[in-house]
């Protein structure tokens, strides 16, 4: 009756061999292709460094104005712009400007990368049920796998630093981008699509003139989610060398510096709220003409 109370499992020796084989296989792969992979990601590294330099080395009033301008053009709402400026001034006053700028730069690059990679994948998913059936479980894995787990292979392949951090963040943050692009395109009004067909639109014309514009509010919701998830991931990514607000938080955890933790934590919350309100207001503006005013 022993098998009833302890689950009959693979014997220890084979299990150990299996794990060892996989580990060694992966290590071999790392040794063989690690450098090559690193070379592939080099442009990303340049982009990251350039963006971080821009954010930290430009005089702070210019950055402040720039962010306020972006907030204005996206939201057209003075309250959101005022909130943004006050939050940033407070962050600066509590001497977290540099770290915050590094984080903002990281989030910016992650978001751009997520959009650039995510939208085409989302479009491909929306066009074919088969692609959707293949990509969906992959996204499920990406969203539910504890992030620490995929930090391991990323670090083994690419070492510690900005690029592996970026990849870890993007893996975590890209699924909503892909899912909502797919959903947005699939939800486009069938009647309007039929009209586009009836006028002889090619697939590209349909995508450009009808599907993407009508899916844009949904895609914006995806972008908003991606930004929020990237911010959440930034602290964890600081464990593999991503600089910014995550590092002081990490230091605060290991040394039990309560105030340091709470200050930097609040700064993350602050920029999260800025990103969220600005991108949501932008999404809402895109939706302006879609609501039915007349019956």
């Amino acid at each position: 009756m022993d098998w009833l109370f302890s689950f009959p499992h693979m014997d220890d020796a084979s299990l150990r061999d299996l794990k060892k084989a996989i580990d060694e296989g992966f290590r071999g792969f790392t040794r063989a292709y690690g450098d090559g992979l690193e070379a592939i990601f080099e442009p990303l590294q340049h982009f990251l460094i350039w963006s971080e330099r821009f954010m930290t080395q430009t005089p702070w009033p210019i950055i402040l104005l720039l962010i306020a301008a972006v907030a204005w053009f996206a939201s057209r709402n003075w309250k959101i712009v005022a909130g943004t400026v006050v939050t940033l001034l407070l962050i600066g006053y509590f001497d977290m400007w540099d770290d915050t700028m590094k984080t903002v730069s990281m989030i910016f690059v992650c978001t751009v990368l997520s959009i650039v990679v995510g939208i085409p994948i989302g479009i491909a998913m929306s066009r074919s049920d088969r692609v959707q059936n293949i990509v969906n479980p992959v996204l499920d894995v990406m969203q539910t796998m504890p992030s620490f787990v995929y930090l391991i292979p990323v670090v083994m392949l690419l070492g510690i630093g900005k690029v592996p951090g970026l990849i870890a963040v993007v893996i975590y943050a890209i699924p909503p981008m892909i899912r909502l692009t797919n959903l947005g395109i699939r939800l486009v009004d069938k009647d309007v699509l039929e009209a586009a067909d009836a006028f002889g639109s090619s697939n590209w014309q349909k995508l450009k003139n009808v599907q993407m514009p009508l899916a844009l509010p949904t895609i914006m919701a995806g972008t908003n989610q991606t930004i929020m998830m990237a911010l959440a991931m930034v602290v964890i990514a600081s464990m593999i060398g991503v600089q910014g607000l995550g590092q002081p938080v990490l230091k605060a955890i290991s040394n039990q510096y309560f105030t340091l933790g709470i200050f930097n934590g609040l700064a993350i919350v602050g920029i999260a709220i800025i990103f969220d309100r600005v991108s949501q207001a932008f999404g809402a503006r895109l939706q302006k003409h879609r609501e039915v005013v007349h019956g």
Binding site: D189, D191, V192, E194, A195, D197, A198, F199, G200, N209, V210, P213, L214, L216, H289, R290
Partner: peptide
């Protein structure tokens, strides 16, 4: 090409592009 040049269609639910 035929749809572009020989036919045009009007729909019950208008099917205009809202944006």
């Amino acid at each position: 090409e035929f749809r572009r040049h020989q036919t045009a269609m009007v729909f019950q639910k208008f099917a205009l592009l809202p944006h």
